[in-house]
């Protein structure tokens, strides 16, 4: 510990990476060994998924409206007002929906997982689980990471739908377009190369949110202030990961589909 203080920054950073890789393998091993904690998993899906619906819904709804209002003048200037539904649906489904929703989830879910596990660490609950011979990784980490990996994509699909509906309402402020026509235009302009890469991306977003939250909470220090630090750095790190994953995903999808 004495040497730790004089460790140069990059060395500490590398150590942190090493820790995370170790934590990843610990998670992975525990997914396949021992029993799966179904009831805790379902509880986490409820906490993580169901309890975020409102937030994700409102955000996506507003984003849909705002995007239409912002896009409209430009497209009208080019005489392309009829392109509005297509522009919205492609940009929302491919990029804006998944990323905005993932960032919202990072703020809500990664921080709450970080704080929850961090406070369990501080109050010795993680140690207690460990010394009882139970496996805290299996019970707490595996369930949470899998729950976020499943729920964030679902939230994201829901958010897409609500966002596009918001777009429809916004469109009808100035122009009038029947819901049927709008719906046909939106669906017609999307194909699986829009939808599938976005869905795969959100799976990774979900994993990153759960993983970072668990890692930060599990490895927090033992003072009360470290609960706040764990929650905070979970949000920051998870958000960063989301953008990194997004950047990689866009490279891969454009190589595969868009050239």
């Amino acid at each position: 510990m004495a040497e730790e203080i004089v460790l140069p920054g990059w060395k500490k950073w590398l150590e942190g990476i090493g820790d995370q890789v170790g934590f990843f393998f610990r998670f992975f091993r525990n997914v396949f060994t021992g029993g799966f904690e179904w009831s805790e998993f379902v509880r986490q899906c409820y906490e993580i998924g169901y309890r975020s619906i409102m937030l994700v819904g409102i955000t996506s709804f507003i984003m849909g409206i705002v995007l239409i209002l912002q896009l409209r003048p430009t497209l009208v200037a080019f005489g392309a007002a009829s392109m509005l539904p297509k522009t919205l649906s492609v940009s929302f489904v491919r990029e804006i929906g998944p990323v905005i929703i993932a960032i919202i989830c990072a703020g809500k879910i990664a921080s709450s997982i970080g704080a929850e596990l961090g406070s369990m660490k501080v109050t010795e609950q993680l140690d207690a689980m460990e010394v009882s011979g139970a496996n805290p990784v299996q019970y707490l980490v595996v369930t949470r990471i899998i729950a976020t990996t499943v729920m964030v994509p679902l939230l994201s699909v829901l958010g897409d739908a609500i966002g596009l509906f918001g777009g429809f309402l916004a469109l009808n402020i100035r122009d009038s377009m029947s819901f049927n026509l709008y719906f046909t235009k939106v669906i017609g302009s999307l194909d699986f190369t829009d939808f599938l890469p976005a869905l795969v991306k959100t799976i990774f977003f979900g994993f990153a949110i759960g993983f970072v939250g668990c890692y930060k909470g599990f490895n927090s220090n033992k003072g009360t202030e470290s609960v706040g630090i764990a929650a905070n750095s979970a949000v920051v790190t998870a958000s960063l990961w989301i953008f990194v994953i997004d950047a990689i995903a866009v490279q891969i999808t454009s190589l595969l589909f868009y050239n």
Binding site: S119, T123, Q125, A128, V131
Partner: peptide
């Protein structure tokens, strides 16, 4: 081995 934590360490 049973271990009683000083803080009790109940699962919240």
């Amino acid at each position: 081995v049973g271990f009683l934590f000083q803080s009790g360490a109940l699962y919240d």
